[in-house]
């Protein structure tokens, strides 16, 4: 009987996991549908662009510049072993534009804005504000979910671009000003080796990360209570799960995108 209990438990957990994945998938499909079919609440979109984009710019500036500076140090000492320190510029540029810029920006936005969005929508769920919206004959997706998706699609690539630029400048500060690589060499070689395809790869990644962040954080908030339990503990669980799941999905999806675009 004990063996049967274990099998039953595994079955129940598997079924519940599949149910939740299905729910998440349907949520994404509905979100896209309401994004494509007007009306769009542009006022809410602007507000969320300010929240997700503008208010994340300081943390992006800080992480971007320090990431670039670390790349400058590590890149120089690695390349100089092979007498290739002249390639510091393209190394920093390619690493940031193709990989570190999109991934680290997305992770910063997840931690800062994704968690806040999940918490806000979660609190609205447990205090019946979402029910109130529905009972006014209004569609909660148009007010809460779609604006976050559009704001993330606009903000995350722009934040990634800022991250790349300050990161490249951080690499310049260390590589050129501190370690003596020629400024013309740094930028000249970067211009020679960084191509439009590399920039587009970073753009596609950041766009898809924007979708992931909006999707996971709004889903977790929207289904607070239903999937995580009610009350403050439910909101806390939803927020934590949003950040963890989003971070993992960003890294996993990054692998698939890299192998696809390689």
């Amino acid at each position: 009987m004990r063996r049967m209990d274990i099998i039953r438990k595994i079955g129940a957990v598997t079924l519940e996991s599949v149910r939740r994945m299905g729910l998440m998938g349907l949520f994404l499909v509905k979100t896209f549908l309401y994004t494509l079919i007007p009306p769009i609440k542009f006022g809410r979109v602007i507000k969320q662009i300010h929240f997700i984009g503008v208010q994340s710019s300081l943390v992006i500036l800080l992480t971007g510049s320090f990431s670039g500076m670390v790349l400058g140090f590590q890149g120089y000492y690695s390349l100089s072993r092979f007498g290739s320190d002249a390639f510091l510029g393209p190394m920093v540029g390619l690493a940031l534009i193709k990989e570190l810029g999109p991934v680290l920006s997305a992770l910063m936005v997840t931690g800062r804005a994704g968690s806040a969005v999940a918490a806000e929508i979660g609190i609205m769920r447990i205090s019946e504000q979402i029910d109130a919206l529905e009972l006014m004959g209004l569609n909660p997706y148009r007010y809460l979910i779609v604006p976050n998706l559009l704001a993330a699609l606009i903000s995350v690539p722009l934040l990634t671009a800022i991250f790349d630029v300050v990161g490249i400048f951080g690499g310049y500060l260390i590589g050129v000003k501190l370690l003596g690589v020629g400024a013309g060499v740094y930028f000249g070689e970067m211009r020679h080796y960084v191509e439009m395809a590399d920039v587009l790869e970073g753009l596609y990644k950041s766009l898809s990360f924007g979708v992931l962040i909006a999707w996971v954080s709004t889903f977790k908030g929207y289904y607070t209570g239903i999937l995580t339990g009610f009350g403050a503990e439910g909101v806390s669980k939803a927020t934590t799960q949003a950040v963890v799941l989003c971070s993992v999905l960003i890294l996993v999806w990054d692998y698939f995108m890299t192998s696809l675009l390689f």
Binding site: S127, E128, G137
Partner: peptide, 20 residues
Amino acid sequence: QLRALRDRLGFLFQGGALFD
């Protein structure tokens, strides 16, 4: 149809459910 019905309906939630 559901929206049309809800246009005729008002609901006072236990906690108020005001948009904070």
